[in-house]
Design a protein around this nucleic acid. Structure first.
Lengths: 105, 105
DNA sequence: TCCATATTTCGTTAATACCCGAAATAACGA
DNA sequence: TCGTTATTTCGGGTATTAACGAAATATGGA
């Protein structure tokens, strides 16, 4: 994870439809959901959503796997972990324990 | 933390100078750094940086406290924690433990 | 092969974000 | 008070990004 990659990920998430899509896929779990299903649940036009999914995938926060006719998108939590680690790298220069953050308690 | 707040935070971080500034302040710890010092360390024009710091502060990822003539900016890690919790809320709908993310190990 | 479904690419238009220098505001010390 | 340093606000020209419908591509079944 480098600066360019982090910026791409943050940019990708900084959009209402894309953030909704990502959080929907977080809830959906590792199997993910096909594009049409995401489109339907979010009420987004397929062509518009396609662009959004493409942006999220290029940013590395989603994975895409084909299942017969459908392409299933899923949240890439490993990359989210790396992104957050990058964001708070060398927290407090190691001087303090002020930076405790716990996820999925 | 709601969707609008999360988008504002992601947008704020999705910029090279702002991401650099935030990570610099993460390293600087809770005391933070004055604006001019950030400007010097990042090689950014004061007026441009001022706008960036304002955006980061409005997004809630930085705090600002005046110390005599200087305004010290510091990373707001509590809000970053909330942001990440929001991002991965209801992970896998509670069905799996696939979503473990640990920060500041 | 040929059709229907799933998804993406393309072209256009509208909105938003960026950078900078100059001027304005704030706070201290002589 | 006056000058100096610290920081922010303003104006404007340029560039990036968004949305949509229509058309194109891909896959599987009859």
């Amino acid at each position: 994870m480098d600066q360019a990659n982090a910026i791409e990920a943050f940019s990708a998430l900084a959009h209402p439809s894309r953030l909704d899509a990502f959080r929907l896929l977080v809830r959906a779990g590792p199997k993910g959901l096909p594009a049409m299903e995401i489109s339907r649940q979010l009420g987004a036009k397929p062509s518009t959503l396609s662009g959004h999914l493409s942006i999220l995938k290029r940013a590395g926060v989603l994975t895409a796997t084909r299942h017969q006719r459908e392409i299933h998108y899923a949240a890439n939590l490993a990359n989210i972990n790396e992104l957050v680690q990058f964001l708070i790298a060398d927290c407090c220069s190691g001087q303090l324990d002020d930076c405790k953050i716990t996820l999925c308690p």
